[in-house]
């Protein structure tokens, strides 16, 4: 999908909904899949699985630490458990359990954090997960994925079941623009070059992929050739696609709905520093907690929209010209 077509970016399912539906579908094929919830099944959408397979669904109540370790026990005994809650809760309250019962013994636990980023909206900062990429990536041996839309979530959920090892899957609350055609192929650990271009590369994950595409189209109209890359897998990071973009475009902008100093951007920067150093700029949440508001209002206020990506790209392009 590296042709320069106009993207429709029509609103599709929220990635949490795509997760819930995919899990139920996969559950029909694989009886080893089990699921655990901490009283948020209707929000995380794991309820689709729970309704269809009540005997394979374990309601843990509001006790995330216990849920994570029960999941690890199920995985140690050969099951493929998906444990899910809001990202802010399962990672922060379950972190020690993720470290000692899942990462350290390298068990086949799948952790799904929904309502990530600031786009959860009205619930406010206590529920906003803006450090989950950092926390999940700090678990040695974990694979960390952050799909941009329903198509990639569905495909990567299948890949997650086939992959053996602990994994964190980041999902959002709000409807996400559809980036991909239904037949797009995805592979864990391989980024997708969504648009090819030679002057600058916009790298993003999650909702910022669509915003980066919008920013790219605005720059294209000005005659700038823009490459857009979706890093749906944050760990292990796709070093080749980053090194190539750095060498071929000489400027990279990384955008994410996460603290800017500990998420995807710094991980891309490490690869750039180790391969082909180039100009880099970063867009994310700057060392603060957000506030209540509509998801769109918040994303706009905190600049996590095409306008923000565009302004960041202009900074990089200006530095490149010097």
């Amino acid at each position: 999908m590296s042709t320069k077509t106009k993207f429709e970016l029509k609103l599709g399912q929220a990635t949490r909904e795509a997760f819930g539906k995919a899990l139920a579908e996969l559950g029909r094929e694989n009886k080893n899949i089990v699921a655990c919830d901490a009283d948020l099944s209707k929000s995380t959408m794991i309820t689709y699985f729970a309704k269809e397979f009540p005997e394979r669904f374990f309601e843990c109540g509001i006790a995330e630490s216990n849920m994570v370790a029960i999941g690890s026990g199920l995985a140690s005994a050969g099951k493929i458990p998906f444990v899910s809650s809001f990202s802010a809760f399962v990672l922060n309250k379950g972190f020690e359990q993720l470290r000692v019962t899942a990462a350290f013994p390298n068990v086949n636990l799948k952790v799904v954090g929904t309502h990530s980023g600031i786009s959860i909206g009205e619930d406010g900062p206590s529920q906003m997960s803006i450090e989950d990429i950092s926390l999940a990536c700090s678990l040695a041996g974990f694979t960390v994925i952050s799909p941009a839309d329903e198509v990639s979530m569905k495909a990567l959920m299948r890949a997650a079941v086939e992959h053996v090892g602990p994994m964190f899957i980041r999902a959002g609350r709000v409807k996400a623009p559809v980036v991909y055609a239904a037949d797009q192929k995805f592979e864990i650990g391989k980024g997708v070059q969504v648009i090819d271009g030679g002057d600058i590369t916009l790298i993003a994950t999650g909702l910022l992929v669509a915003e980066s595409i919008r920013a790219a189209e605005a720059l294209e109209a000005e005659g700038v050739s823009v490459r857009v890359i979706d890093l749906h897998t944050i760990k292990p990071i796709d070093r080749d696609i980053i090194a190539k973009a750095a060498a071929e475009t000489g400027a990279i902008v990384v955008s994410e709905e996460h603290l800017v100093d500990s998420g995807l951007g710094v991980r891309v920067a490490q690869v750039v520093a180790e391969t082909n150093p180039c100009i880099m700029e970063f867009l994310g949440v700057n060392n603060t907690y957000a506030e209540s508001g509509t998801p769109d209002g918040l994303l706009d206020k905190y600049n996590l929209v095409a306008r923000g990506v565009l302004a960041t790209a202009r900074k990089a392009l200006a530095r490149k010209k010097k």
């Binding site: 089990v34 999941g71 026990g73 199920l74 995985a75 005994a77 359990q97």
Partner: peptide, 10 residues
């Protein structure tokens, strides 16, 4: 918790 997870699998 781990033991309960193993027991549920059994």
């Amino acid at each position: 918790s781990l033991g309960i997870g193993m027991a549920l699998a059994a």
